[in-house]
C-alpha cells in the first residue's frame, strides 16, 4: 500500500514534467533506508501508470545502499541492516550519508529508448 501511494506521487510529478508527451522511461533513485521494495514499486507502477495516462512508461530503479559515518571515530560503513551503530567503536552517534534517497532522477520522453541506449 505504501508503494501505491508513492507511485501515485511519482505519476503526478512525471505528468507535470512531461505534459501531454509520451513517456518511455521514469528513473528513480531509492535508498535502502526508505523501506520501498523495488519489486512492489514496479508492480504498483504498472497499475498507476496504466490508469494515469502513462501507460507503457517503464520504471527503472537505482538503489543506493545505506551508509553511515561515525561521529566518534570517523569510520564509514555500508549497512546490511538498518542498525545505526558504528561497528568499530559501537557509537550510536552516526550520520547517515547515503540510503535516504527518494527522488525521480530523469524521465525519457518519446516512444523508445533514449539516445544513449540505442
Amino acid at each position: 500500500m505504501h508503494e501505491l501511494s508513492v507511485c501515485t506521487a511519482i505519476a503526478d510529478a512525471v505528468r507535470t514534467h512531461a505534459g501531454d508527451r509520451p513517456v518511455y522511461e521514469v528513473r528513480l533513485c531509492i535508498g535502502h533506508l526508505r523501506q520501498l521494495v523495488p519489486d512492489s514499486l514496479t508492480f504498483c507502477w504498472s497499475l498507476v501508470a496504466d490508469h494515469g495516462g502513462l501507460a507503457g512508461a517503464r520504471l527503472v530503479i537505482d538503489e543506493v545502499p545505506a551508509e553511515i559515518e561515525c561521529e566518534a571515530c570517523g569510520r564509514r560503513t555500508v549497512l546490511d541492516h538498518p542498525v545505526l551503530l558504528c561497528p568499530d567503536c559501537s557509537s550510536r552517534l552516526v550520520r547517515i550519508i547515503a540510503g535516504e534517497e527518494c527522488h525521480i532522477t530523469s524521465i525519457v520522453l518519446g516512444d523508445g529508448p533514449g539516445t544513449e541506449e540505442r
Partner: peptide, 19 residues
C-alpha cells in the same frame, strides 16, 4: 524532436516534493 526522440530530461524531483 521530443515526440519521437526518446530524449532524456533530468528531473531531480523529490518524490514527496509536492507533498
Amino acid at each position: 524532436g521530443y515526440q519521437t526522440g526518446g530524449e532524456r530530461i533530468e528531473v531531480l524531483e523529490a518524490i514527496f516534493g509536492e507533498n
